[in-house]
Design a protein around this nucleic acid. Sequence first.
DNA 1: TGTTTCATGTAAACCGTTACATGATTCA
DNA 2: TGAATCATGTAACGGTTTACATGAAACA
Lengths: 187, 187
Amino acid sequence: MDVKALCLGVLAKGPATGYEIKKLIQDGPYQHFIEASFGSIYPSLSRLAAEGLIEARTEPLEGRPDKKIYSLTPQGREAFRSILSRDPPEDKFRSGFLFQMMFADALGPEEKTAKIEGKLAEYRARHARMVEKRTSQPLSEGELFCLGFGESLVTAAIAYLDSHARRSAAPAPSPAPARRVRAGTAR
Amino acid sequence: MDVKALCLGVLAKGPATGYEIKKLIQDGPYQHFIEASFGSIYPSLSRLAAEGLIEARTEPLEGRPDKKIYSLTPQGREAFRSILSRDPPEDKFRSGFLFQMMFADALGPEEKTAKIEGKLAEYRARHARMVEKRTSQPLSEGELFCLGFGESLVTAAIAYLDSHARRSAAPAPSPAPARRVRAGTAR
DNA sequence: TGTTTCATGTAAACCGTTACATGATTCA
DNA sequence: TGAATCATGTAACGGTTTACATGAAACA
């Protein structure tokens, strides 16, 4: 889901400026699933406006750029509905940590345990933030669903890492001989 | 972790061609955590070679391009070790499905349930593939760790979606009034 | 006094995907 | 006969980040 779709989604809930969209993404209920910078939000809004999917009401301000409060046009609402009903792309979990663990035999066992414990702390902090988000303010059904999903995954990650933080101090069972994989076919 | 780091990692386990790296990524134990296309792998290998981190032994073939079997140089091994010991970037879960659920109030309840059930099927299939990978061939410690982590997350996702596939048929409890979020600060 | 908040935007750089080009061999 | 396998690479395109530019007001 690209930044254009994201903007459309936020605006479907109510008018907002580019600045507010950024805020919502990084501090609001979206923070755990999405990120976007000004450098992609502002151009996206311009393009959406050029396509007639959103429109801006400009509010002059002194000492800083005019505030542009965007809202969906009927065509924009229609376009967003179409995005929602499409088949979404596959979910992706990208983890630099897992990458490092994949090749961790090149690392010392203490270094490895330290990394696992670091990630564990990170996930616990993330979990706390999610619980805080969920309980500190009333959320829509969709937001609850997403936060609940996120909490489930984070909880599973914590359990897994916790059970491995202790285990990993032990030496590896076998020296893992060199191995070339014979897998399927490249496309 | 970018494609260059990925290539370095694969080559740290043993020499390989670009074609084989692609195969390993999409069918081997990496398949659930990473993806990369030829369009990024070949240029990455060229750049790594230019930087002296890998070197190629060329094997002439008839009827198709010469095979270039890459292996790590000592500098490459050092560079990879340095990548491994760095603090990894934050883990990211990107989900078009969750995005759609976030705004699913604009969707009919049957459509929503159908989407949840579709994702459920996808995750069950993914889980089966992971179990198959884990049991069908001997894996290194790192690969087991990663697959185990992945299985934990996928299992949690399945449990969550399963418990919500039934619930979501019920009507929403409250009409969810319009709400503007007052969150922290944009950077 | 210095940092954070509000507010928008552009330009360069980066990284990656998709599509294309080539072509023999093996499998169904 | 047609698809898949092996094998490398380039070009065009797309999307995003990072850094920069501007500047007042409020807060600590």
